[in-house]
Write a protein that binds this DNA or RNA. Sequence first.
DNA 1: TTGGAATGTCAACAAGGCTGACTTAAAAGC
DNA 2: GCTTTTAAGTCAGCCTTGTTGACATTCCAA
Lengths: 166, 166
Amino acid sequence: MADRIGSGGPSLLFLTDEQLRQGIEAMFFAYRGFTADPDRILDAHGYGRAHHRALHFIHRSPGTTVNNLLSILGVTKQSLNRVLRSLIEEGLVEARVGARDKRERHLYLTEAGADLERELSEVQRERMRAAYREAGPEAVRGFRMVLEAMMDPVQRRHFNRLKDGE
Amino acid sequence: MADRIGSGGPSLLFLTDEQLRQGIEAMFFAYRGFTADPDRILDAHGYGRAHHRALHFIHRSPGTTVNNLLSILGVTKQSLNRVLRSLIEEGLVEARVGARDKRERHLYLTEAGADLERELSEVQRERMRAAYREAGPEAVRGFRMVLEAMMDPVQRRHFNRLKDGE
DNA sequence: TTGGAATGTCAACAAGGCTGACTTAAAAGC
DNA sequence: GCTTTTAAGTCAGCCTTGTTGACATTCCAA
Protein backbone atom coordinates (compact mmCIF):
# COMPACT_ATOMS: atom_id res chain seq x y z
CA MET A 1 0.00 0.00 0.00
CA ALA A 2 3.05 2.19 -0.01
CA ASP A 3 2.65 5.63 -1.48
CA ARG A 4 5.55 6.64 -3.66
CA ILE A 5 4.87 5.29 -7.12
CA GLY A 6 7.92 6.70 -8.76
CA SER A 7 7.28 9.96 -10.55
CA GLY A 8 3.53 9.61 -10.42
CA GLY A 9 3.03 11.55 -7.25
CA PRO A 10 0.08 11.33 -4.88
CA SER A 11 -2.45 12.46 -7.47
CA LEU A 12 -1.98 9.17 -9.31
CA LEU A 13 -2.23 6.97 -6.26
CA PHE A 14 -5.80 5.93 -6.92
CA LEU A 15 -4.85 4.65 -10.35
CA THR A 16 -2.41 1.94 -9.34
CA ASP A 17 -3.24 -1.56 -10.53
CA GLU A 18 -3.84 -2.57 -6.95
CA GLN A 19 -6.34 0.23 -6.41
CA LEU A 20 -8.08 -0.63 -9.67
CA ARG A 21 -8.26 -4.30 -8.74
CA GLN A 22 -9.83 -3.37 -5.45
CA GLY A 23 -12.40 -1.32 -7.31
CA ILE A 24 -13.17 -4.34 -9.49
CA GLU A 25 -13.59 -6.58 -6.47
CA ALA A 26 -15.72 -3.98 -4.74
CA MET A 27 -18.07 -3.97 -7.73
CA PHE A 28 -18.25 -7.74 -7.70
CA PHE A 29 -19.02 -8.10 -4.00
CA ALA A 30 -21.32 -5.09 -3.84
CA TYR A 31 -23.39 -6.28 -6.78
CA ARG A 32 -24.01 -9.49 -4.91
CA GLY A 33 -25.37 -7.54 -1.97
CA PHE A 34 -27.32 -5.34 -4.31
CA THR A 35 -29.30 -8.26 -5.72
CA ALA A 36 -29.45 -10.47 -2.63
CA ASP A 37 -32.64 -9.12 -1.04
CA PRO A 38 -34.82 -8.98 -4.16
CA ASP A 39 -33.54 -12.42 -5.16
CA ARG A 40 -34.98 -13.92 -1.99
CA ILE A 41 -38.39 -12.40 -2.61
CA LEU A 42 -38.37 -13.36 -6.27
CA ASP A 43 -37.49 -16.91 -5.37
CA ALA A 44 -40.43 -17.15 -3.00
CA HIS A 45 -42.73 -16.00 -5.81
CA GLY A 46 -41.17 -18.29 -8.40
CA TYR A 47 -39.67 -15.48 -10.43
CA GLY A 48 -36.13 -14.55 -11.37
CA ARG A 49 -34.00 -11.47 -11.82
CA ALA A 50 -35.19 -10.99 -15.36
CA HIS A 51 -38.74 -10.55 -14.06
CA HIS A 52 -37.53 -7.98 -11.57
CA ARG A 53 -35.82 -5.96 -14.25
CA ALA A 54 -38.93 -5.95 -16.41
CA LEU A 55 -41.13 -4.91 -13.48
CA HIS A 56 -38.70 -2.19 -12.49
CA PHE A 57 -38.50 -0.52 -15.87
CA ILE A 58 -42.21 -0.86 -16.61
CA HIS A 59 -42.91 0.78 -13.29
CA ARG A 60 -40.41 3.44 -14.14
CA SER A 61 -41.84 4.17 -17.58
CA PRO A 62 -45.49 3.14 -17.64
CA GLY A 63 -46.72 2.64 -21.17
CA THR A 64 -43.26 1.88 -22.56
CA THR A 65 -43.14 -0.27 -25.65
CA VAL A 66 -41.59 -3.71 -25.90
CA ASN A 67 -38.91 -2.39 -28.21
CA ASN A 68 -37.94 0.35 -25.82
CA LEU A 69 -37.75 -2.09 -22.95
CA LEU A 70 -35.63 -4.34 -25.14
CA SER A 71 -33.03 -1.69 -25.75
CA ILE A 72 -32.91 -0.68 -22.09
CA LEU A 73 -32.45 -4.25 -20.91
CA GLY A 74 -30.09 -5.17 -23.72
CA VAL A 75 -31.50 -8.65 -24.32
CA THR A 76 -33.15 -10.30 -27.30
CA LYS A 77 -36.88 -10.08 -27.82
CA GLN A 78 -37.17 -13.83 -27.42
CA SER A 79 -35.59 -13.61 -24.02
CA LEU A 80 -37.73 -10.70 -22.89
CA ASN A 81 -40.82 -12.23 -24.40
CA ARG A 82 -40.57 -15.33 -22.27
CA VAL A 83 -40.44 -13.22 -19.14
CA LEU A 84 -43.11 -10.80 -20.29
CA ARG A 85 -45.46 -13.60 -21.26
CA SER A 86 -45.39 -15.12 -17.79
CA LEU A 87 -45.88 -11.71 -16.18
CA ILE A 88 -48.88 -11.04 -18.42
CA GLU A 89 -50.35 -14.52 -17.94
CA GLU A 90 -50.10 -14.19 -14.21
CA GLY A 91 -51.70 -10.80 -14.20
CA LEU A 92 -48.77 -8.63 -13.14
CA VAL A 93 -48.37 -6.77 -16.39
CA GLU A 94 -50.87 -5.53 -18.92
CA ALA A 95 -50.01 -5.03 -22.60
CA ARG A 96 -52.25 -2.56 -24.38
CA VAL A 97 -52.27 -2.25 -28.14
CA GLY A 98 -51.02 1.14 -29.21
CA ALA A 99 -53.64 3.73 -30.13
CA ARG A 100 -51.54 5.57 -32.66
CA ASP A 101 -49.51 2.61 -33.83
CA LYS A 102 -51.37 -0.62 -33.37
CA ARG A 103 -48.24 -2.72 -33.84
CA GLU A 104 -46.83 -1.50 -30.60
CA ARG A 105 -47.71 -2.90 -27.20
CA HIS A 106 -47.66 -0.49 -24.32
CA LEU A 107 -46.79 -2.09 -21.03
CA TYR A 108 -48.31 -1.28 -17.67
CA LEU A 109 -48.16 -2.85 -14.23
CA THR A 110 -51.44 -4.15 -12.87
CA GLU A 111 -52.20 -3.63 -9.22
CA ALA A 112 -50.67 -7.01 -8.40
CA GLY A 113 -47.63 -6.13 -10.48
CA ALA A 114 -47.22 -2.83 -8.71
CA ASP A 115 -47.49 -4.66 -5.39
CA LEU A 116 -44.66 -7.02 -6.23
CA GLU A 117 -42.57 -4.23 -7.69
CA ARG A 118 -43.02 -2.25 -4.50
CA GLU A 119 -42.04 -5.22 -2.38
CA LEU A 120 -38.90 -5.75 -4.43
CA SER A 121 -37.84 -2.16 -4.69
CA GLU A 122 -38.49 -1.59 -1.01
CA VAL A 123 -35.84 -4.02 0.15
CA GLN A 124 -33.45 -2.87 -2.51
CA ARG A 125 -33.95 0.77 -1.63
CA GLU A 126 -33.57 -0.08 2.02
CA ARG A 127 -30.15 -1.57 1.36
CA MET A 128 -29.20 1.43 -0.77
CA ARG A 129 -30.48 3.80 1.88
CA ALA A 130 -28.43 2.11 4.60
CA ALA A 131 -25.32 2.24 2.42
CA TYR A 132 -25.92 5.90 1.57
CA ARG A 133 -26.44 6.74 5.21
CA GLU A 134 -23.31 4.91 6.26
CA ALA A 135 -21.17 6.53 3.58
CA GLY A 136 -22.62 10.03 3.67
CA PRO A 137 -23.82 12.49 1.02
CA GLU A 138 -20.38 13.39 -0.28
CA ALA A 139 -19.56 9.73 -0.87
CA VAL A 140 -22.88 9.24 -2.62
CA ARG A 141 -22.02 11.93 -5.14
CA GLY A 142 -18.72 10.20 -5.85
CA PHE A 143 -20.41 6.82 -6.10
CA ARG A 144 -22.81 8.14 -8.69
CA MET A 145 -20.10 9.87 -10.67
CA VAL A 146 -17.90 6.80 -10.95
CA LEU A 147 -20.81 4.52 -11.85
CA GLU A 148 -21.96 6.88 -14.56
CA ALA A 149 -18.45 7.10 -15.96
CA MET A 150 -18.28 3.32 -16.07
CA MET A 151 -21.34 2.91 -18.29
CA ASP A 152 -21.23 2.35 -22.02
CA PRO A 153 -22.43 5.46 -23.84
CA VAL A 154 -25.67 3.74 -24.85
CA GLN A 155 -26.46 2.71 -21.28
CA ARG A 156 -25.52 6.13 -20.09
CA ARG A 157 -28.05 7.69 -22.43
CA HIS A 158 -30.74 5.35 -21.14
CA PHE A 159 -29.75 6.14 -17.60
CA ASN A 160 -29.96 9.88 -18.08
CA ARG A 161 -33.23 9.68 -19.94
CA LEU A 162 -34.78 7.75 -17.09
CA LYS A 163 -33.27 10.13 -14.59
CA ASP A 164 -34.83 13.10 -16.35
CA GLY A 165 -38.16 11.34 -16.49
CA GLU A 166 -38.46 11.06 -20.24
CA MET B 1 -23.34 14.90 8.04
CA ALA B 2 -25.93 14.10 10.63
CA ASP B 3 -29.06 13.69 8.57
CA ARG B 4 -31.82 14.89 10.79
CA ILE B 5 -35.02 13.04 10.18
CA GLY B 6 -37.30 15.89 11.10
CA SER B 7 -37.90 18.64 8.62
CA GLY B 8 -36.45 16.90 5.61
CA GLY B 9 -33.98 19.61 4.69
CA PRO B 10 -31.40 19.37 1.95
CA SER B 11 -29.32 16.88 3.93
CA LEU B 12 -32.02 14.29 3.27
CA LEU B 13 -32.15 14.89 -0.44
CA PHE B 14 -29.98 11.94 -1.27
CA LEU B 15 -32.28 9.59 0.55
CA THR B 16 -35.45 10.28 -1.36
CA ASP B 17 -36.97 7.31 -3.14
CA GLU B 18 -36.14 8.94 -6.43
CA GLN B 19 -32.49 9.31 -5.49
CA LEU B 20 -32.38 5.73 -4.29
CA ARG B 21 -33.98 4.46 -7.49
CA GLN B 22 -31.39 6.33 -9.49
CA GLY B 23 -28.70 4.65 -7.46
CA ILE B 24 -30.26 1.29 -8.22
CA GLU B 25 -30.38 2.02 -11.92
CA ALA B 26 -26.84 3.35 -11.88
CA MET B 27 -25.69 0.02 -10.39
CA PHE B 28 -27.57 -1.89 -13.05
CA PHE B 29 -26.23 0.05 -16.01
CA ALA B 30 -22.71 0.38 -14.63
CA TYR B 31 -22.42 -3.33 -13.95
CA ARG B 32 -23.20 -3.96 -17.58
CA GLY B 33 -20.33 -1.71 -18.59
CA PHE B 34 -18.14 -3.30 -15.98
CA THR B 35 -18.50 -6.77 -17.50
CA ALA B 36 -18.79 -5.80 -21.16
CA ASP B 37 -15.10 -5.78 -22.11
CA PRO B 38 -14.04 -9.04 -20.44
CA ASP B 39 -17.18 -10.70 -21.80
CA ARG B 40 -16.05 -10.04 -25.36
CA ILE B 41 -12.64 -11.58 -24.73
CA LEU B 42 -14.10 -14.55 -22.87
CA ASP B 43 -16.50 -15.17 -25.70
CA ALA B 44 -13.66 -15.28 -28.21
CA HIS B 45 -11.92 -17.90 -26.05
CA GLY B 46 -15.05 -19.94 -25.47
CA TYR B 47 -15.25 -19.13 -21.79
CA GLY B 48 -17.83 -17.38 -19.63
CA ARG B 49 -18.00 -15.03 -16.70
CA ALA B 50 -17.68 -17.87 -14.24
CA HIS B 51 -14.26 -18.70 -15.68
CA HIS B 52 -13.22 -15.09 -15.35
CA ARG B 53 -14.16 -15.00 -11.69
CA ALA B 54 -12.20 -18.17 -10.97
CA LEU B 55 -9.13 -16.87 -12.82
CA HIS B 56 -9.35 -13.55 -11.04
CA PHE B 57 -9.45 -14.93 -7.54
CA ILE B 58 -6.85 -17.62 -8.17
CA HIS B 59 -4.57 -14.93 -9.51
CA ARG B 60 -5.33 -12.86 -6.47
CA SER B 61 -4.65 -15.65 -3.98
CA PRO B 62 -2.30 -18.16 -5.56
CA GLY B 63 -2.47 -21.49 -3.78
CA THR B 64 -5.98 -20.93 -2.50
CA THR B 65 -8.02 -24.05 -1.83
CA VAL B 66 -11.20 -25.06 -3.59
CA ASN B 67 -13.20 -24.54 -0.42
CA ASN B 68 -11.90 -21.03 0.02
CA LEU B 69 -12.67 -20.15 -3.57
CA LEU B 70 -16.12 -21.59 -3.06
CA SER B 71 -16.91 -19.31 -0.19
CA ILE B 72 -15.55 -16.23 -1.97
CA LEU B 73 -17.58 -16.92 -5.09
CA GLY B 74 -20.65 -17.99 -3.19
CA VAL B 75 -21.58 -20.85 -5.51
CA THR B 76 -21.92 -24.60 -5.02
CA LYS B 77 -18.97 -26.89 -5.48
CA GLN B 78 -20.73 -28.58 -8.38
CA SER B 79 -20.99 -25.27 -10.13
CA LEU B 80 -17.40 -24.29 -9.47
CA ASN B 81 -16.15 -27.76 -10.30
CA ARG B 82 -17.52 -27.60 -13.80
CA VAL B 83 -15.63 -24.39 -14.44
CA LEU B 84 -12.47 -25.49 -12.68
CA ARG B 85 -12.36 -28.79 -14.50
CA SER B 86 -12.34 -27.11 -17.89
CA LEU B 87 -9.69 -24.63 -16.78
CA ILE B 88 -7.47 -27.45 -15.54
CA GLU B 89 -8.06 -29.64 -18.60
CA GLU B 90 -7.14 -26.78 -20.89
CA GLY B 91 -4.02 -25.98 -18.96
CA LEU B 92 -4.92 -22.60 -17.49
CA VAL B 93 -5.05 -23.72 -13.89
CA GLU B 94 -3.00 -26.21 -11.92
CA ALA B 95 -4.31 -28.03 -8.84
CA ARG B 96 -1.61 -29.25 -6.47
CA VAL B 97 -2.32 -31.69 -3.66
CA GLY B 98 -1.76 -30.05 -0.30
CA ALA B 99 1.51 -30.76 1.51
CA ARG B 100 0.18 -30.43 5.03
CA ASP B 101 -3.33 -31.63 4.31
CA LYS B 102 -3.49 -33.97 1.35
CA ARG B 103 -7.25 -33.63 1.04
CA GLU B 104 -6.86 -30.08 -0.11
CA ARG B 105 -6.10 -28.92 -3.66
CA HIS B 106 -4.17 -25.71 -3.98
CA LEU B 107 -4.94 -23.75 -7.11
CA TYR B 108 -2.44 -21.86 -9.25
CA LEU B 109 -2.56 -20.19 -12.64
CA THR B 110 -0.29 -21.68 -15.27
CA GLU B 111 1.53 -19.34 -17.62
CA ALA B 112 -1.32 -19.61 -20.11
CA GLY B 113 -3.80 -18.95 -17.30
CA ALA B 114 -1.90 -15.90 -16.18
CA ASP B 115 -1.84 -14.67 -19.77
CA LEU B 116 -5.61 -14.85 -20.12
CA GLU B 117 -6.14 -13.35 -16.68
CA ARG B 118 -3.91 -10.45 -17.64
CA GLU B 119 -5.77 -9.91 -20.88
CA LEU B 120 -9.08 -9.87 -19.06
CA SER B 121 -8.05 -7.71 -16.16
CA GLU B 122 -6.30 -5.27 -18.46
CA VAL B 123 -9.46 -4.22 -20.25
CA GLN B 124 -11.43 -4.18 -17.03
CA ARG B 125 -8.83 -2.08 -15.27
CA GLU B 126 -8.70 0.20 -18.27
CA ARG B 127 -12.42 0.88 -17.98
CA MET B 128 -12.09 1.40 -14.24
CA ARG B 129 -9.11 3.67 -14.76
CA ALA B 130 -11.00 5.82 -17.25
CA ALA B 131 -13.97 6.09 -14.89
CA TYR B 132 -11.72 6.96 -11.96
CA ARG B 133 -9.94 9.57 -14.00
CA GLU B 134 -13.17 11.12 -15.19
CA ALA B 135 -14.68 11.23 -11.71
CA GLY B 136 -11.60 12.19 -9.73
CA PRO B 137 -9.98 10.91 -6.54
CA GLU B 138 -12.55 12.33 -4.17
CA ALA B 139 -15.35 10.59 -6.07
CA VAL B 140 -13.38 7.35 -6.04
CA ARG B 141 -13.24 7.40 -2.26
CA GLY B 142 -17.00 7.85 -2.14
CA PHE B 143 -17.54 5.13 -4.70
CA ARG B 144 -15.54 2.70 -2.63
CA MET B 145 -17.27 3.65 0.60
CA VAL B 146 -20.77 3.17 -0.77
CA LEU B 147 -19.91 -0.13 -2.43
CA GLU B 148 -18.39 -1.47 0.73
CA ALA B 149 -21.43 -0.41 2.73
CA MET B 150 -23.64 -2.25 0.26
CA MET B 151 -21.97 -5.63 0.74
CA ASP B 152 -23.29 -8.39 2.93
CA PRO B 153 -21.09 -8.79 6.02
CA VAL B 154 -19.69 -12.06 4.73
CA GLN B 155 -18.70 -10.55 1.38
CA ARG B 156 -17.31 -7.55 3.14
CA ARG B 157 -15.03 -9.76 5.18
CA HIS B 158 -13.80 -11.48 2.03
CA PHE B 159 -13.29 -8.12 0.37
CA ASN B 160 -11.21 -6.75 3.22
CA ARG B 161 -9.15 -9.89 3.54
CA LEU B 162 -8.24 -9.74 -0.11
CA LYS B 163 -7.54 -6.05 0.19
CA ASP B 164 -5.12 -6.65 3.03
CA GLY B 165 -3.42 -9.39 1.06
CA GLU B 166 -4.32 -12.28 3.34
C1' DT C 1 -49.65 -1.77 -53.10
C1' DT C 2 -45.82 -3.19 -51.32
C1' DG C 3 -41.71 -2.95 -48.30
C1' DG C 4 -40.28 -2.93 -43.92
C1' DA C 5 -40.96 -2.34 -38.98
C1' DA C 6 -42.91 -4.10 -34.61
C1' DT C 7 -44.34 -7.94 -32.46
C1' DG C 8 -44.95 -12.67 -31.37
C1' DT C 9 -43.84 -17.57 -31.58
C1' DC C 10 -41.50 -22.12 -32.24
C1' DA C 11 -37.44 -24.86 -31.77
C1' DA C 12 -33.00 -25.75 -30.25
C1' DC C 13 -29.07 -24.88 -27.63
C1' DA C 14 -25.57 -23.21 -23.96
C1' DA C 15 -23.92 -21.22 -19.67
C1' DG C 16 -24.20 -21.39 -15.15
C1' DG C 17 -26.84 -21.57 -11.26
C1' DC C 18 -29.26 -25.26 -8.13
C1' DT C 19 -30.37 -29.96 -5.33
C1' DG C 20 -29.49 -34.63 -4.02
C1' DA C 21 -26.90 -38.73 -3.70
C1' DC C 22 -22.66 -40.97 -3.53
C1' DT C 23 -17.42 -41.97 -3.49
C1' DT C 24 -12.74 -41.40 -2.08
C1' DA C 25 -9.11 -40.01 0.77
C1' DA C 26 -7.37 -38.10 4.64
C1' DA C 27 -7.56 -35.71 8.93
C1' DA C 28 -9.43 -35.44 13.62
C1' DG C 29 -11.42 -37.11 17.62
C1' DC C 30 -12.62 -40.52 20.95
C1' DG D 1 -7.52 -48.40 16.41
C1' DC D 2 -11.95 -47.14 14.98
C1' DT D 3 -15.33 -43.75 13.86
C1' DT D 4 -16.69 -39.42 12.38
C1' DT D 5 -15.93 -35.43 9.90
C1' DT D 6 -14.02 -32.84 6.22
C1' DA D 7 -12.31 -31.72 1.36
C1' DA D 8 -12.90 -32.73 -2.95
C1' DG D 9 -14.87 -34.77 -6.95
C1' DT D 10 -18.63 -36.79 -9.70
C1' DC D 11 -23.18 -38.10 -11.72
C1' DA D 12 -27.81 -37.01 -12.79
C1' DG D 13 -31.31 -33.87 -13.32
C1' DC D 14 -33.60 -29.43 -13.04
C1' DC D 15 -34.25 -24.21 -13.72
C1' DT D 16 -33.49 -19.53 -15.45
C1' DT D 17 -31.95 -16.74 -18.73
C1' DG D 18 -29.34 -15.81 -22.31
C1' DT D 19 -28.45 -16.96 -27.48
C1' DT D 20 -29.69 -18.07 -33.08
C1' DG D 21 -32.55 -18.92 -36.72
C1' DA D 22 -36.85 -19.29 -39.03
C1' DC D 23 -41.27 -17.76 -39.75
C1' DA D 24 -46.18 -15.49 -39.21
C1' DT D 25 -48.90 -11.53 -38.43
C1' DT D 26 -50.15 -6.93 -38.43
C1' DC D 27 -50.13 -2.57 -40.23
C1' DC D 28 -47.68 2.04 -41.07
C1' DA D 29 -45.79 4.68 -44.63
C1' DA D 30 -43.72 5.65 -48.95
